[in-house]
Design a binder for these strands. Structure first.
Lengths: 351, 351
DNA sequence: TTGTACGCGTTATCAA
DNA sequence: TTGATAACGCGTACAA
């Protein structure tokens, strides 16, 4: 049982001028002040100017809390991201912000730190703050979609981005991970590499599965067998990529891969380190491709071939879709796919 | 004159269960529901459980808008940053978020895009939303501190971070740019370089001035003359660093610098490109040091010596100070300085 | 232990 | 063109 701390009016609160106070000072009604300040409804021009002048002089700042209460509209959007530092999300936020700024919506940013419970708390808070809509990129550890389903059932406008939940009845903006992974794998195969390995992400995250599938499909399309020992779980981080690559290098020489497709760039960085520590050359001994065009990819000792994810565009489109939902202009549920772009650099050895 | 769009209750609003509705359903008063849900004041345990169960079944979500209105407290902090993509800010936000999450505050994130007007609008919006406090990192183009002064005069808790305004009567968390720049310059001088240039930031931004001063103080401390032609304005970006370095390389051979201290890493990257395009070697022909420990610094063809700014720590301390202000635990105005750390790599040629 | 009355700051509505 | 009233959903203060 929690302690019974008494609620009380905030002692430290800033005392603000209210519309009523302006009204009293001017000997008019609060309603007229409201009309003047919002320049709405019929109002005598002279009155309007008097009110605006008084408001300015008195340092009036309209109370959007009260406004939101009566209008049932906060002009605020909640954003839930699983990671702040990973460069994809700052970029995506920039895209979101670009759209919401123009439409005069504000952003409440929450961070799940890849934790399901923390994500659920964040969503609850956003609900309590009555945001007009929510943008979510799902945390890795989420297994239960109940919270999402409840939101959707209630009718809270919601758009998933980057990490989506299929068939849940909500719109979603993402890149085509499977197709992109297939294409980059095909790029390596086309160059003649036969034994190609995959450093795979967590299987319970959709992008992990999708990229693995793309990898397999590319092999299948060429009738190449996918050797199980060449598909190693690396997770999304550098350390996992390093460990996974070491396992591959521990295989008998004949079984070692000639090329590697990593689930993302950090994993590729780890793998590159493992390769070089072994004294092997990239791409002469082992070619490698990443995924995500991390800002560091171009600056590696051997620049990394990768797939560029248009994060800004993903954020922008997700925000646009959400505003469409909120304002009823675009009520349909959509799955929006943003195309990726291959960035061919030295690490794949394809000239 | 703006069009008179009639206000109306939001048609698309989600209809939520209210405390009163739970009360009616249970045949009790709204007040008892409030007490049950907040577990506050005297309440019969049985009643409490009944209410909590009903609330859960009916999908109750407390309306924090209404709560904020009556309590004059939003449990929300406004953050104003000038740049989203620059890795310093995501890191700082992570530090802020870490603190505010634990204290159960939410973050409204706004972005000035280095634009003074946009920053002012952001602050106004945050005021209207009645955030409990504001964290600001000033936009480059801000010349007039009136908006800040008004906030401070009214008593809005506010803490500047990274980019501060001296003597304005607000707390501030930043790194010691001048001292750090002095130390990194001294590091180069200690290695025997005599002609050292500085690629300087905008003079009207405090960190630009501070780093320049630090550079000059280091020279002065060794009795070395600061040649005006070796201090070139580069701004904060790669392109500016590139252009500035080209100007230095256009000087007569004898006047060219043996080493360069850049105002930040992006400027240093630009300079490195200019040096290498000229066919000169780093550090054999020209040594260089940056500032900020950009994620790319370690991965340059010649790894860049630089100064690490503990962005996370800056954000964390700023948020802590703000919460102290908001809750009256730490009302004093403080200028908090976070120490930097030198990261010595190959580009400075000091072994 | 529970309920009633009132207020938070604003806007919609309808009357003046 | 302006004003009075009620309402938004909740919490404080006090009464029952």
């Amino acid at each position: 049982m929690k302690k019974n701390i008494p609620h009380r009016k905030n002692k430290h609160a800033v005392n603000r001028v209210t519309g009523k106070e302006i009204a009293d000072m001017l000997g008019i009604s609060a309603m007229t002040v409201s009309r003047a300040i919002n320049n709405r409804g019929y109002i005598h021009e002279e009155t309007r100017q008097k009110v605006v002048a008084a408001a300015k002089k008195m340092g009036y700042s309209p109370n959007n809390i009260a406004k939101s209460l009566v209008l049932k509209k906060t002009h605020t959007i909640g954003v839930v991201i699983p990671e702040i530092t990973h460069s994809f999300f700052p970029e995506a936020i920039r895209g979101i912000e670009e759209v919401t700024y123009r439409a005069h919506y504000d952003l409440i940013l929450t961070h799940s730190a890849e934790d399901a419970k923390r994500e659920r708390d964040a969503i609850r808070t956003l609900e309590s703050k009555r945001v007009d809509g929510i943008l979510i990129s799902m945390a890795e550890s989420v297994e239960d979609h109940k919270t999402y389903k409840e939101l959707i059932a209630i009718g809270v406008p919601i758009v998933f981005f980057d990490r989506c939940v299929a068939g849940i009845g909500a719109s979603c903006v993402s890149i085509d991970d499977e197709l992109s992974a297939m294409k980059i794998t095909e790029h390596l195969l086309a160059h003649g590499y036969k034994r190609v390995a995959h450093l795979s992400g967590p299987k319970d995250v959709s992008i992990g599965r999708a990229r693995l599938n793309g990898f397999k499909r590319a092999l299948a399309a060429r009738g190449i067998v996918c050797h199980p020992e060449l598909v190693i779980d690396s997770g999304f981080h550098e350390s996992g990529g390093y460990a996974a690559m070491k396992k591959l290098l521990a295989l008998p020489k004949a079984q070692q891969p000639r090329a590697v497709v990593a689930v993302n760039d950090p994993a590729a960085f780890g793998a590159m380190r493992a390769i070089q520590e072994r004294g092997l050359r990239i791409p002469e001994d082992i070619a490698i491709a990443g995924f995500s065009d991390d800002i560091r990819a171009a600056m590696m000792p051997v620049p990394l071939t990768t797939v560029r994810q248009p994060a800004y565009e993903v954020g922008r489109l997700a925000a646009l879709k959400l505003l469409g939902l909120i304002e009823g202009k675009s009520p349909a549920i959509e799955e929006i796919i943003v195309q990726t772009e291959q960035v061919i650099r030295k690490s794949c050895g394809c000239h």
